[in-house]
Design a protein around this nucleic acid. Structure first.
Lengths: 151, 151
DNA sequence: CAAACAACGTTGGTTAGGCCAACATAAAGG
DNA sequence: CCTTTATGTTGGCCTAACCAACGTTGTTTG
């Protein structure tokens, strides 16, 4: 027994937060890929962590962002090549690298943040300012309730 | 000047809905992959569309779910192999396949839905019932404000 | 009516993200 | 001391989203 027009997602999916989040993330990814340089999202995340917390080891970067050590390594390598960060061995713990953001990296972070806010504005065009604040708060609460599980 | 402990995501990311949605989607994917059979999410979506809207062409399934024609084709092939759907050429438009859910497929849909609700419950454990309703409504509003853009 | 156009299913890729395995080195703990 | 744990690094796997191209079939238009 057909119910309605198949132009919208079925109700079973529209009531699944999991599915909704995935779709919105995909929308964001599409907007991002057409406006940010390649790897921009990961670069932005790593630079933001370094800017806020100061020099970090690669493992700490990963824990802060929920990223795998391996992937952090790749991003840091790319950022180092662009002189956006500075990677040197930690003398007091020679297993670790100390990753530091450069002045050029800080500028790049600001540029990426501006783009990110434009994207956010387009993404949330259907919500007024109060609703956007509510949504951010709810999503943060969900994330906070899940400890850093992965890798 | 380091601010706080790097055990949490930087503020610049925590205020980006795009990043938050992605992280939550990843959490959901992790929970899903450990409890649903392989390809369960896509199967669930396609079966849900067929159940709600009745027999559909593969292109209509894709439009309803925001999926690419190619990917729909793959999922329908898998579902057909498991006798969860029934695929036959449409006599009035021989370009189209008419995809119909079977009784076995409807049972499978119910099983997958039960698992999906368990996952949803774990994912949203930090929110009370009112907050969950609010969150769903806000996410739906965001999705509704973006027409079916892709493929 | 005929020719151009658009839609559909299908095959076969590409890319980015998230993840796991294994290793050598270095530190920490017994 | 020996064992265990942490770190960076290399290399690879898999899923999801996408794109390109093709032959076939409707649809539209000159």
């Amino acid at each position: 027994m057909p119910n309605e027009d198949p132009l919208r997602p079925p109700g079973r999916l529209e009531s699944l937060t999991q599915w909704q989040s995935g779709k919105i993330a995909t929308l964001g990814a599409r907007l991002t890929s057409s406006r940010m340089p390649l790897g921009g999202r990961a670069d932005f995340a790593v630079l933001a962590a370094l800017q806020q917390f100061g020099p970090l080891s690669q493992a700490d970067i990963g824990r802060s962002l929920g990223l795998d050590r391996n992937d952090v390594n790749e991003v840091v390598g790319r950022l180092e090549g662009a002189h956006h960060v500075h990677r040197m061995p930690n003398p007091t713990d020679r297993r670790r690298n100390t990753v530091t953001i450069t002045a050029q990296g800080a500028r790049h972070l600001d540029e990426l943040e501006a783009i990110a806010h434009e994207i956010q504005n387009d993404l949330l065009q259907g919500l007024d300012q109060n609703e956007r604040v509510q949504l951010r708060a709810l999503l943060r609460k969900v994330l906070a309730s899940h400890g850093p599980q992965p890798s």
